[in-house]
Design a protein around this nucleic acid. Sequence first.
DNA 1: TCCATTTCTTCTAATCTATAGAACATTTGA
DNA 2: TCAAATGTTCTATAGATTAGAAGAAATGGA
Lengths: 110, 110
Amino acid sequence: MKKYLSRPEEFVLLVLYQIEGEAYGNNIRKKLAEVTGKYWSIGSVYVPLDRLENKGLVKSFTGKITPERGGRAKRCYEITKGGLERLAELQKAHNTLWSKMPNLSFGEDK
Amino acid sequence: MKKYLSRPEEFVLLVLYQIEGEAYGNNIRKKLAEVTGKYWSIGSVYVPLDRLENKGLVKSFTGKITPERGGRAKRCYEITKGGLERLAELQKAHNTLWSKMPNLSFGEDK
DNA sequence: TCCATTTCTTCTAATCTATAGAACATTTGA
DNA sequence: TCAAATGTTCTATAGATTAGAAGAAATGGA
């Protein structure tokens, strides 16, 4: 039995919460890269998204067509109540565990 | 390539940081249960610990024998510099992502 | 019209991780 | 000497991570 959201699930949900307007694959991917400073492959965005959807923690709908060059219809996502509940659960554990930690980032410019 | 510590790795490291005195299997397990309010099997403590040790993020040593009933020698763990660095990396991403979140725990007494 | 280009999603597969608990080891007290 | 207590190691199954190839759909220029 799974205890908590996995790391990618957590990050995807949090980013979903923060994106203004429609949140879809590439969008989410860019935000993840921006926020973490790391490379996120396409798969490492969609696979957790799919799993979250199967578990009912996000839901998706087809986005409006934008007047851009080409491109297939966007699949947009939003967090469900269930998703928020799982995040809340994590938040609680985080508060307990992280609030006691000092700032660890001493000269992390490697 | 792995981006961040997994959830169990994170929690084990944080708990390791917080335990006063010697931190060993059962100890860590109890603290995890206390902090999360969930059941942690023995394996779900030792498996991440082993992996963390293989990666050099914790190190272990044999604990002193205590005057208790019976029992095999304790294997005690502590975080290494590398472990703190990985935690610092997580802390940074967390701050970015979680600091914007409101408190989500509305009536979570289910 | 047709096709190259762009934008986006789906699928897949290898590797790694989570989780539970059985098995094993060591010490002590009756 | 052995049952009980206290710990750790081992192992196996299910599930997750990650990258990227393949597929799909829309657009605009020749």
